[in-house]
């Protein structure tokens, strides 16, 4: 499974959703935000180096943290040296070696946001309930469909008491998972931990388990096999 976590808009919580979804599905999270990486990083080769042909994608995966990560560099020089065309092959290499991959997409709709959709086989679209940017979401959905990464689930993030679940489901034609506004989640994110580790019984942790179950329906006829590891 190769999931792109996208949203069109910035600041809706794509990285938080990608990181926690990676924790729940035991996937490698690829920080695909080439210009503004914000997932936890560390020293060593990163996605910029991979896309500049200076490092092997599988060797750039960091194990040992709470979530296996392929982090992204934060320098403009690194972003300039990176060739986004290589992302598709890099994601496939990581999938072959590790199994499931979750790609955190950048905001916007330039090629750096489109390439993860080409690399993925399904898309999770993150939106906020009060600032629901429908045109952005529709454009992202159309692009995901063209690139064969159909919209599997919409995440309404930071919802209050009465999320507009039905309206969003109708507008986007995809099932909705709501992630409630949550102190445990905010605390976990601030310390670079998945909420499923710090507060496994919280509503937010339950929401990410529900999201993982929704995008990986039990398949008839074909069994998924995990390779590598």
């Amino acid at each position: 499974m190769r999931v792109a976590v996208t949203g069109g808009k910035g600041g809706v919580g794509k990285s938080t959703v990608a990181y926690n979804l990676g924790a729940v599905t035991d996937a490698v999270v690829v920080d695909g935000d080439l210009g503004m990486a914000d997932l936890p990083g560390s020293a060593g080769p990163d996605l910029h180096d991979v896309l500049a042909d200076r490092a092997d994608p599988v060797e750039a995966v960091r194990e040992g943290g709470p979530v296996d990560m392929l982090p992204c560099g934060r320098s403009l020089a690194g972003a300039r040296a990176a060739n986004v065309r290589g992302l598709v092959d890099a994601v496939r290499s990581v999938e072959r070696a590790y199994g499931d991959v979750v790609v955190d997409c950048p905001a916007g709709l330039a090629a750096d946001a489109g390439m993860p959709l080409l690399a993925a086989d399904r898309t999770v679209l993150v939106a906020l309930p009060d600032a629901f940017a429908l045109p952005d979401a529709l454009r992202t959905r159309a692009l995901a469909r063209e690139l064969d990464a159909g919209l599997a689930q919409v995440v309404l993030n930071r919802t209050g008491t009465n999320p507009p679940r039905a309206a969003v489901e109708r507008a986007l034609g995809a099932p909705v998972t709501t992630v409630p506004e949550s102190d445990p989640l905010a605390r976990a994110t601030a310390t670079g931990q998945p909420v499923t580790a710090t507060a496994p019984d919280s509503a937010a942790a339950e929401a990410f388990h529900a999201l993982a179950a929704a995008i990986t329906p039990p398949r008839r006829g074909a069994r998924r096999t995990r390779r590598g590891r």
Partner: peptide, 15 residues
Amino acid sequence: PTPEHVVRALGDPTP
């Protein structure tokens, strides 16, 4: 679609 198609359609994001 290939990576080249995506870059052609959406524009190269390199700074």
